[in-house]
């Protein structure tokens, strides 16, 4: 069961990676990378169960959060060209 799950997840990751390289706009890439991160979280979780030591789910938890924070940070950068210092001036960029 776990082996089937891992194989499916690896195929999925390959497809999302393909979109990451292909994606015409930056948003496509970001979406694909976000999806890729979610698949990584699942892969680590399933892998932990497959090897019979499911104690390392903390790492998957950290990944899930880091993935979200990273996506939001990049989006914020897109929106403001800045990480939000609040002193944005249009002519400087």
């Amino acid at each position: 069961m776990f082996i089937a799950g891992i194989l499916a997840l690896l195929v999925t990751m390959a497809l999302t990676l393909w979109r990451t390289l292909l994606g015409p706009t930056l948003f496509d890439r970001l979406l694909a990378v976000n999806s890729f991160g979610t698949k990584t979280v699942l892969l680590i979780a399933v892998y932990g169960f497959m090897t019979g030591r499911p104690d390392f789910l903390d790492i998957a938890l950290v990944y899930a959060l880091i993935n979200f924070v990273g996506t939001i940070a990049v989006l914020k950068f897109f929106e403001y060209d800045d990480l939000g210092s609040g002193k944005y001036q249009e002519d400087d960029f």
Partner: peptide, 17 residues
């Protein structure tokens, strides 16, 4: 549940491509 989940993620990736 695992198979349903795998169908979900694979179809999502196919849609993404």
């Amino acid at each position: 549940l695992m198979i349903v989940g795998c169908v979900f993620v694979v179809s999502g990736a196919v849609g993404l491509v």
